[in-house]
Nucleic acid binder design. Structure first.
Lengths: 195, 195, 195, 195
DNA sequence: TATGAATGAGCCTTCATTCAT
DNA sequence: GATGAATGAAGGCTCATTCAT
């Protein structure tokens, strides 16, 4: 089992295929055709069709969160960090529309993702958002009594839904344009009065 | 086609089954067994398995939005309407956990819902939220320059994610308790400065 | 799951198909075609292809041993019982050549039969032979020091091989004709001297 | 095709693998791994998986019969020859349990062996036994009217079954100990009265 | 010669849907 | 209308065999 590019090629093909048809309506042979290989070859690199999906999600999500974490570290304060995070969220998904399609629309198969194998990658994202909020609370820029967990879910859900609508709307406008309004509303919602 | 209760019995059984196993991992025969009827009988009332899902979603969503619309009509101003809407959203799903499970986790099979057959029911909910926001803008209680569409998606996404987390967290706490924090943060985020 | 004849029809079709091609070279669809049903129907009555084979073997073997046991009970003494057993063994397999083919040639897939699920049915046959031999020893007609277990295996193996040769020789002669010579040689071999 | 040891290494590996899992449940790659070579290499020496099995059986059987033939030639009379043959049969298989497992339990795939490609090697063994019996008849030590063919099959079948039981019984005792009882019973069965 | 990644035909099994009763 | 046995198309996965290196 040598070719170190094959798994990535397969993942990439799977992203496109799943984006097009959804997981359950995609055949392993579709992925193979998209990747330009024989269907049996896929099984040299992945044990099952499910494993493709899980691997794909984990990898993309981990990369996504990793980039976000690094980028926002350079920002001076929690509000700036949140603005950057929101912007990057939208920019990244806009730059990878197939991925966005998969993440937004297809990977919501209960059990399989938020529960189960990929829960860790998702909670890493929640942790990242939560830590920025917590930092802001402690720095006194966000409401002292801010329910951090709820706020975290709200921001994630808000970005998620804006992205979903963009994907479903066939991406007829610039997703990144939503970054500023979203950040504004959310920040205003959590910022301490008198600031 | 006589029995006017059958379709409802089937829908109700389907909600429970889908909540348990997801749409693609549920058999038509599972729904039949849950409903206490023969699997062939289902086809007297629904043309395909997909149709069960679509009907189920449409019906539940329409009922949900209808109740919300009526309830918030009695509230005096847009902020009060939003508070009531948020509270009812959480209370209703908490009272029907099976339904919540289906809506939150299983009905996200792209293509099939937000796009496609059920788009109308979903946009009815968006319209309801949007109209309250618009009303508030016009009344001067919400920011004059509020991007209503984005804010609408944000609120829906925020409620949605809070509910999803609750469902996935095995419902270990009161969902309705999230109503006030969510409403507070969102309202603060959209309210006009100086009020 | 009603039709009480289906399992038998499937078993009978399987006997013919396995006899023709062997277990591993037979498709479930071959059995279905032979039985005149759809291949999916087989799975209403058997969980797996393996289960067909095991069931088939158990049933045939149990019936076979049951008949033998009843028939030899009527014989006056152990030698007569053995003669009758040998004769019936050959006559029965001659009357059911498909069955003979399966039992003799195909069911010898190690692990699966002599070991495993069908061991019980086979040992029932051994027990039957062994009990007649033991009876003869105790009655003084067979050698007092006869190693009953070894002798049991010898008789079974002898009959088995004679049958196998007959099957492989495309059954070009009467198998039942072998009954007397086999019984003669074996009885002479185990009978107490001086009788 | 250079390396003259490879085919033998492959055969030996195949014996071990088939003994462990049976022919149909063994992969060509299993044999390769056991032999310490790449699976493609096997196809430099054997055209198909079947050919490995056939070659293996032919070679082992031919060697087996060759040894037996030479060894019994030194014995003074037919009964002594038979005793020696029976003893060697058991001793050889006891010394090569892998081989015994393959021959006894796995190589019984009808069609493929007793019929077909290996028929010649098997009949060589039958011929050997038969010639000894015939010799004994002509020498007057065995029954003048002995049905030699049937008796041949009986002895082979008897030894075969005793060995099979030993293999299946996980070889919990000395197989060679069965040589004397088997020879005794069989010889008594075929010996001319009055001797 | 040796390798082992790649191939793709083939098969067991599932399950939505039909239809005779 | 109701049933549930029967259907058969479809697809995930395996593995003998090939072939570029």
């Amino acid at each position: 089992m040598r070719d170190p590019d094959k798994p990535q090629q397969i993942i990439d093909a799977a992203v496109r295929v799943f984006a097009r048809n959804g997981f359950y309506n995609s055949r392993v042979s579709d992925i193979a055709r998209e990747a330009g290989i024989a269907s049996g070859t896929i099984y040299l690199y992945f044990k099952t069709k499910d494993e493709i999906l899980v691997t794909l999600f984990r990898e993309k999500m981990a990369g996504f969160v990793g980039v976000l974490r690094k980028e926002i570290a350079g920002e001076p304060d929690p509000p700036a960090k949140l603005r950057r995070l929101v912007r990057l969220h939208f920019e990244t998904l806009e730059a990878h529309p197939d991925m966005a399609e998969v993440v937004q629309v297809e990977l919501r198969q209960g059990q399989k993702f938020f529960r189960g194998a990929s829960a860790h990658e998702i909670s890493a994202y929640f942790d990242l958002i939560g830590s920025v909020l917590q930092e802001g609370v402690e720095a006194g820029v966000f409401r002292r009594d801010l329910p951090v967990k709820v706020a975290t879910k709200m921001l994630f859900g808000a970005m998620d839904q804006v992205t979903t609508s963009w994907v479903l709307g066939k991406r007829g406008y610039r997703l990144a344009d939503a970054a500023e309004p979203v950040a504004n509303i959310f920040l205003k919602g959590v910022t301490r009065d008198g600031i």
